[in-house]
């Protein structure tokens, strides 16, 4: 067994246990491998071991990988999980299966325009800011209704769910109340905004450190980098 195979098996096992513990159906959680800064060969290797969802942060880097995966007919679902600048939106639309980091109306509008030009329906998620995060990304909870209201009529966008990256705590259990909060938000938003365009089926939350808890609280997508590829990437 390769090191990577070992690590992936360990994660798949953790996912299954968390699903079982919370009475959710097996396979309810999509494992997104955070592959930013990793080589295409890393992705290929993980793909060969069964992973199908990959998360990227940087447009130029991701574009190269997406093209290569296409050339090799790999059945990869690409997720943009890092902040997107409006001037790069045209490179993201149609390439990523889901753009998870939409957090403001100007970005939503330009994505809608680009999707119309490319004649595609672009799946997006709303990134929500929970707690005092070090990041500026994400729409504050109090501004969600306004944003979604403004997004009515952006017909080329399909809002598939919510994404969040709550502040990390040394203790994984500390994340639980954020995950609960995001799940409740999703339920509220469904009541208010559900339509063909806004479905809110997905909850993208939980990383290497706390994904078990995220799954217990209803995550349908978890974003795992370190636990899959190791600490070789961003050396902070």
């Amino acid at each position: 067994m390769s090191e990577l195979q070992d690590r992936i098996a360990g994660i798949v096992d953790r996912i299954a246990q968390a699903e079982k513990k919370s009475g959710r159906p097996q396979g309810a959680t999509k494992l997104i491998a955070v592959s930013k800064t990793k080589s295409f060969e890393h992705i290929q290797e993980a793909y060969d071991l069964g992973l199908r969802h990959f998360g990227e942060n940087y447009i130029q880097e991701a574009t190269r990988k997406i093209e290569r995966a296409k050339l090799q007919n790999l059945d990869v679902h690409w997720h943009l999980i890092g902040p997107l600048q409006t001037n790069k939106s045209k490179y993201a639309v149609g390439r990523f299966d889901t753009i998870q980091s939409v957090d403001r109306i100007d970005l939503a509008k330009i994505l809608n325009k680009r999707a119309a030009e490319a004649q595609v329906i672009q799946k997006i998620m709303i990134q929500v800011k929970l707690g005092d995060e070090p990041t500026k990304s994400g729409v504050p909870v109090g501004a969600l209704d306004v944003l979604l209201g403004q997004m009515q009529g952006l017909e080329r966008l399909q809002v598939v769910g919510l994404m969040s990256l709550p502040p990390l705590d040394a203790e994984p259990e500390a994340s639980r109340h954020y995950f609960v909060q995001l799940r409740k938000l999703k339920e509220e938003l469904l009541k208010k905004f559900e339509s063909q365009q806004m479905k809110f089926e997905e909850l993208s939350m939980g990383t290497t450190f706390d994904f078990d808890i995220a799954i217990e609280e209803g995550a349908t997508m978890i974003r795992v980098g370190t636990a899959i590829f190791g600490r070789r990437g961003e050396a902070r």
């Binding site: 902040p83 990041t135 990304s137």
Partner: peptide, 24 residues
């Protein structure tokens, strides 16, 4: 630099952009 990003995110983005531009 984007006002939507933290300093670290901006710095990271700028060096990634530069590196990939040079690579191309």
């Amino acid at each position: 630099f984007s006002e939507n990003l933290t300093l670290e995110e901006n710095l990271t983005r700028v060096v990634m952009d530069k590196a990939w531009a040079a690579f191309s």
